[in-house]
Amino acid sequence: MNTKLRNGLAVAGIAVVGIVGIALPASANDEKPFTVAGFCGWDPGTDGGTYGHAYGHANVRSGPGAHCDRRGGAEPQDSLHYRCYAAAADGSTWTYVTDERTWLTGWIRDTYLSGGGSYTHC
């Protein structure tokens, strides 16, 4: 292979790697989890249509975050209708639920829910 052709291919390879290297961070940012600044009192109308239960007594809160007021609690024997989830500012995820026994609605942190809570974004 002649030297000019080999050098030309090497330069082209560097250019392609440089372009791909520049493009990758943009796509990596697209894959970051959806986050919302959890605000208290948010009652979304989304209905994910799945059910589960709490692993133990779980606080039901007025918004997706431990800083929100406690509305009540859910027990392991309660059937919970998982409506949707949101990610709080700290990265934790919370599911908006309706307790089928008490009809209480609110947010429970996903670590306390069977199946990891809802998989439908609010």
Results as ranks from 00 to 15, higher is better:
26 A>Q: 12
109 R>G: 12
79 S>V: 15
27 S>L: 15
10 A>M: 09
25 P>D: 01
16 V>H: 03
75 E>N: 11
110 D>T: 04
119 Y>T: 14
3 T>L: 09
121 H>E: 12
47 D>M: 10
118 S>L: 01
67 H>A: 15
116 G>P: 07
52 G>Q: 06
73 G>Y: 07
2 N>L: 01
13 G>M: 00
37 A>N: 12
57 H>R: 12
88 A>E: 09
4 K>P: 07
118 S>T: 02
63 G>P: 02
91 G>C: 07
53 H>D: 09
60 V>E: 03
17 V>G: 08
93 T>I: 08
89 A>Q: 13
45 G>D: 13
29 N>Q: 15
98 T>K: 05
69 D>S: 11
99 D>E: 12
36 V>I: 08
90 D>R: 00
22 I>P: 04
42 W>V: 08
109 R>N: 15
29 N>D: 13
40 C>L: 02
77 Q>M: 11
105 T>E: 11
45 G>I: 09
83 R>D: 04
84 C>W: 01
27 S>H: 10
87 A>H: 05
29 N>A: 12
78 D>W: 07
22 I>Q: 14
38 G>H: 05
22 I>V: 13
101 R>D: 13
71 R>C: 06
63 G>L: 00
44 P>C: 04
75 E>A: 06
19 I>Y: 00
12 A>L: 11
51 Y>M: 10
72 G>K: 02
21 G>T: 05
119 Y>R: 11
70 R>E: 10
5 L>N: 10
44 P>M: 03
118 S>N: 07
44 P>L: 03
74 A>G: 07
66 A>D: 13
115 G>R: 07
100 E>L: 14
101 R>Y: 14
64 P>A: 14
10 A>N: 08
44 P>W: 01
54 A>R: 00
104 L>V: 04
